[in-house]
Design a protein around this nucleic acid. Sequence first.
DNA 1: CCCTAAATATCCGTTGACGAATATTATGTC
DNA 2: GACATAATATTCGTCAACGGATATTTAGGG
Lengths: 225, 225
Amino acid sequence: MPHMKRLSNPLALAVLALLFERPMHPYEMAATLKHRHKHESIKLRYGSLYTVIELLIGRGFIVAKETSRGGKRPERTVYSLTPTGCDELRDWMRELLSEPAQEFPQFEAALCLLPVLPPDEAVRQLRCRALHLSGKIAQLEAHLSHVVEQDLSAMAGPEEKLPAQLAGEKFPPIFLVESEYRLALIKAELDFVNDLVRRITEDGWGPVGMWREIQASMERQHAEA
Amino acid sequence: MPHMKRLSNPLALAVLALLFERPMHPYEMAATLKHRHKHESIKLRYGSLYTVIELLIGRGFIVAKETSRGGKRPERTVYSLTPTGCDELRDWMRELLSEPAQEFPQFEAALCLLPVLPPDEAVRQLRCRALHLSGKIAQLEAHLSHVVEQDLSAMAGPEEKLPAQLAGEKFPPIFLVESEYRLALIKAELDFVNDLVRRITEDGWGPVGMWREIQASMERQHAEA
DNA sequence: CCCTAAATATCCGTTGACGAATATTATGTC
DNA sequence: GACATAATATTCGTCAACGGATATTTAGGG
């Protein structure tokens, strides 16, 4: 009975996608993800890598192909994708692209509970966040403009040969969409934070008085006890 | 030996914040979070709620105050915040507000691996996502404009009495920032998706040809085996 | 007054995430 | 040629997350 519900760890998706290209052993998967900077978008932990590989085997999506090959390195197992695994990869990708998932960013949780801090304290922390965000934006923009200068050889794995007709081509933006996405979201967040700080400080915004009162009444209550 | 590393589940933060207001039993915490719509921003699972409460007790952040009170309901335990717990709440909030956390949205993972789908397929799914996103935006905007019409009584818990001077006041936007944040991010995502679809289809964008070639070469390779 | 449904309140077993330890081979470098 | 260091490759134990089961009380209908 191959369990019914889909794996939830995106690292499993990455494993399927890598094995879609060619058979690999786990360490090579990790190295490839890092080389292509995908580990900034897909959380990579060695512990989890071996766990999800076991799970994928259990569901028949991948199989061990050969073991202990090439006497030069420590023993290792090379895995490859099954047809079922290939279907799963496509279905999973379709689902992730078409349906926005309900996620719970930590900053949103903090905003929910904002009234537990005094307004001035909140403003101070938010300004600090804005600085961090600006830094990240600069970093990402530098990264993007640097990478498009490179040629394609940087794209594949370290030991990979490219089809001859592709060598020397410019680095294609399709392999950078995830960074563009991240950049767009961080910019939006920065705008939001700046606007929020403005609204709280430029005191035309109603409830700061009430916010202070809540704080004061909490102070009293905790002082009693 | 009170373990050293901070709890990672934001539900624990919510528990601290609720107990900062007043002592409660677990079920009441859940009811309050739902009543205030915070469960859309903080993942609430009953299993996790009782787990994090145990963990918070273990670290000395909260304590059981009274048990089995009021013979009317099933036995229950009322917890309250310790001074250490109050400090933890503030520190944690400061950290969440000031430092952007490295998170891994599933959509970003999917974008990373976009080339495993043929371009037309990808465009179809992205258009579908754009529809979903527009729907969410409409929903959120409706929700926001509906809630600001209400008075404050909707804000607190179901059985809560408000300070008299607040009754009849308008619903203050400070209690809705998390929804505004969500709205801002979803709008940014929609813009990104629309732009991406445009770039892929309006074929001035370089690599769609290469993308198709990669697909074709994969088809061949999988056909061989 | 009994029965069912809904609301209240909690517990527990399974799964999966991942830090840390382990083991092996290559690469200097003096 | 010995020894530290880096790179390669995987295993294991712990603990948090949470679905689903359980137990109790109230409310309503006949």
